Computed example of a mutant assay.
Amino acid sequence: MIALEWLPGGTLADYFLYKIREKEDSDRSPIQLKDMLSILYQVSQALKYIHSRLDEFGQELTHGRILTRNVLISEPDLKKCEVKLGDFGEAPSGLEYSTPIVAYMPPEILCCAERIPPHRPENDVWMFGVFIWECLTLGAQPHFRKSVEDIKKSFRLPDRGLSCPPTCPLDVWTLVIDCLSDPHVRPRFASTTNASIPTRLSELHHIVSPALFLYPIPNQSVCTCTEHHCQSIPQY
């Protein structure tokens, strides 16, 4: 059993839900993109540490569950808060179709014919790309109410089915798309080059204007199935 520190700010998922998405616009604190980039940088540093370690077989360690519910924040003020990445354990298999984690799975896992495909460092990079998108939308659900087959089809789209948020600068969106690219060209966390994910996030944090703010993007569903009684209208 691994004991993890609990931070008083709770999870990032709860922050998005209770401090952002369930509040009226007038009651919601403005979120600067620069502050969110600081959160992303801290998470990337944690993943850099994990990926720089080797398992008993000499392979890079991976996390496998890079979700907002697994990121703990020290306080609600994002300008001051520190974050910790939790739930470091068994990476998800391709069979976990019944859980929300399927929306984060890369094509090489979700479309793999193997019963339990191996989880590799580049898989974490894809998951981190989806994680960035969720943070930029302030908690929108990736691939909201899509079936597994619909998610697989979205892999063929240029944006992988995750639309660029309106206030997201091109440089930031380029990092997201790079993380969602083919496995062999995705950036790495533990790379020693200037193209590593932590380095790029640090540079983005430095150059992004403090006048850029993020706004909650509603979940969009085009599902009309009778099972879910879905409606093709925005839902927070």
Rank of each mutant, 00 (worst) to 15 (best):
P165C: 02
L157H: 11
G89R: 09
M105R: 02
L110C: 10
F128Q: 00
T167H: 10
K152C: 09
F131M: 03
D171M: 13
C164R: 15
S98A: 15
E114F: 08
E114L: 12
L136T: 01
P118L: 11
R115S: 13
C111L: 14
E134I: 05
R120H: 03
P117F: 05
L175S: 02
C112I: 02
I177D: 06
M105Y: 06
E149D: 15
R160W: 06
D171P: 10
R186C: 03
V130N: 01
P165G: 02
M127A: 10
P165Y: 01
P183T: 05
S93N: 09
I132D: 00
L110I: 12
H119Q: 05
H119W: 15
P106L: 09
E90G: 11
D159E: 14
H184A: 12
C135W: 01
H119E: 00
A103G: 04
D159F: 10
K152G: 01
E96T: 09
A103L: 01
A113V: 02
Q141K: 15
K153W: 10
E134W: 08
G161A: 12
G89A: 06
L138F: 10
L95M: 15
H184I: 10
H184G: 08
I177E: 07
P166W: 06
C111S: 14
T99P: 00
D124H: 01
I177K: 14
P100H: 08
T137A: 08
P142G: 04
T99I: 03
D150P: 00
Y104H: 13
H143T: 05
P106S: 07
A91F: 07
C168K: 04
P169T: 08
H119K: 04
R145D: 12
G161S: 09
A113H: 09
S147H: 08
V172W: 00
S93R: 06
C111E: 14
D159C: 12
S98C: 11
V102H: 06
V148I: 14
V148H: 06
M105W: 04
W133Y: 09
T167E: 14
R145A: 06
R160H: 13
R115V: 13
C111K: 15
A91W: 02
P106A: 05
R115Q: 13
I177S: 12
E122Y: 03
P158Q: 12
G89N: 10
L180C: 12
P117V: 01
V185C: 09
V148P: 01
S98P: 02
D178C: 08
S98F: 14
T174M: 07
T99Q: 11
R145L: 08
P169C: 06
T174L: 10
I151D: 02
K152R: 15
P117L: 04
D171Q: 14
R115G: 05
F144Q: 04
A140C: 13
W173C: 09
G94W: 07
L170A: 14
F128K: 00
M127E: 11
